[in-house]
Design a protein around this nucleic acid. Structure first.
Lengths: 243, 243
DNA sequence: CGTTAACTTGACTTCGTTCAAGCGGAGTGG
DNA sequence: CCACTCCGCTTGAACGAAGTCAAGTTAACG
């Protein structure tokens, strides 16, 4: 029941550096036994003392914060191979919950840091991991700050696709989280997420297959619409340098 | 002209840990000579190879990214004592520009990391710094994701106030950046920033004195309006735990 | 004291939210 | 196997907060 095949590092494209970082750091988790979390179960809670770090062996996890009244912000989703809690000084800044059924390994924060400090390979791997998380946070700020609903959705779908295994067969993308999770991650409402997907579908850019799968028809168009201007084709180059 | 009084660590309230972190890491910059940057000048540019880390001796710096067409996101402001570029793997993820005239020290990335790795006190300080940056990034995501214009402005003013020296005399807060900078940091337009400040002024919560100073009249109210629910007074506690 | 850039204010538009109703598929029980 | 129910999602219509466009106003600087 636990330990299974451990297909922990099959995410497709991130930087070499990052993949290496993940791999070497995971060695610290091999000794631990993977625990099962059913979908919806909390792994750790915002404000709890961060005694442990977690590694996802299997499944998808969401990290969220809740402010004031019920407003929820999902700061990140994490997938098989990812560590949770690496960038925490003392307390958890977020609640982590299983989106799907998960298998998760756990090590104590202290032993993790001791091991990292002791090793010449683990240490840069750890730094690299933190920097990568920082990069993701910046991307998310840009998304939340300047992108409209369509750009947000396209960015999200692209990021999901880039993490998934080779887009299983002919471009069918698994979307493990529900609409509310997506909305809370993109700073939108569930209705806007739904409408935007419908709009993308009507334009034959993606085709929804049930609630949790997307046929990606036009990846290039998706990239254009994400607002990241990876190509400088269209009206992309009007930056007015004021100094 | 360089080196002056070096009032580098006068920010008021962050965690002890963080202040210590800043202090010990700054020892690495003492050997360098402080260079002057006039307001508006770029310190480093997004995409450049990150050969150096910077420490602000004096002045205020903005970090920004530009996406697609001219849309600019200011991911953070930094003040005297802060390091710039600590959370970067290889390339700069942002452009850093002087908001006010600045004095800045610079060390090579390599020597910085060598020194940090070599020292038992510097290393945790560095980790702590990264974690603190991550926390700030999370806060910003929450702000951009769920707060309205008024909450954003109040949060911003509060954060500024908490960084400033003891709120110079009777609550007069220096706001070094212009309206456009504030707008680009809060994910608003310049007009909305202006209107919102006017509204806060009409309610006697702050009183603007010129373009770059704010008399803070009602700090408590400001905190309430920031939407962070530090107090659980009003309608704050309706979180529906679904599991 | 005059010029100019930065800021404020007003009128109108827009995109996303809100509120409300309808749809559909997975699970349950007859 | 079908009918029923429930929940997650979609769709529609009305609303509203912030954006846009266009004047004014202010204050910073020479």
């Amino acid at each position: 029941m636990l330990m299974q095949k451990s297909h922990a590092f099959e995410h497709a494209e991130t930087t070499n550096e990052t993949v290496l970082a993940g791999q070497s750091l995971s060695s610290l988790f091999f000794a631990s036994v993977a625990e099962s979390y059913p979908a919806g179960k909390a792994i750790c809670r915002e404000g709890d003392e961060a005694k442990h770090l977690f590694q996802i062996v299997e499944g998808v996890v969401r990290l969220h914060r809740i402010i004031g009244d019920g407003r929820r912000v999902i700061t990140a989703f994490h997938f098989a191979g990812d560590l949770i809690g690496a960038s925490l000084p003392s307390d958890f800044l977020f609640t982590a919950e299983a989106v799907t059924d998960c298998k998760i390994r756990r090590v104590s924060r202290k032993s993790f840091h001791d091991d990292v400090a002791r090793s010449d390979t683990l240490h840069p791997a750890y730094i690299s991991l933190l920097c990568h998380e920082m990069t993701a946070a910046h991307e998310q700020m840009v998304l939340l700050s300047k992108k409209n609903a369509e750009e947000r959705l396209c960015s999200f779908i692209l990021k999901l696709a880039s993490r998934s295994s080779p887009l299983s067969a002919q471009g069918l993308l698994r979307v493990p989280m529900n609409r509310q999770d997506i909305a809370d991650h993109l700073g939108l409402t569930i209705e806007t997420v739904s409408r935007t997907i419908t709009k993308l579908a009507s334009r034959k850019i993606v085709i929804p297959e049930g609630r949790h799968d997307l046929q990606i028809v036009n990846l290039a168009r998706l990239a254009q619409l994400s607002g990241d201007a990876d190509d400088f084709s269209e009206k992309s180059c009007h930056r007015v340098s004021l100094h």
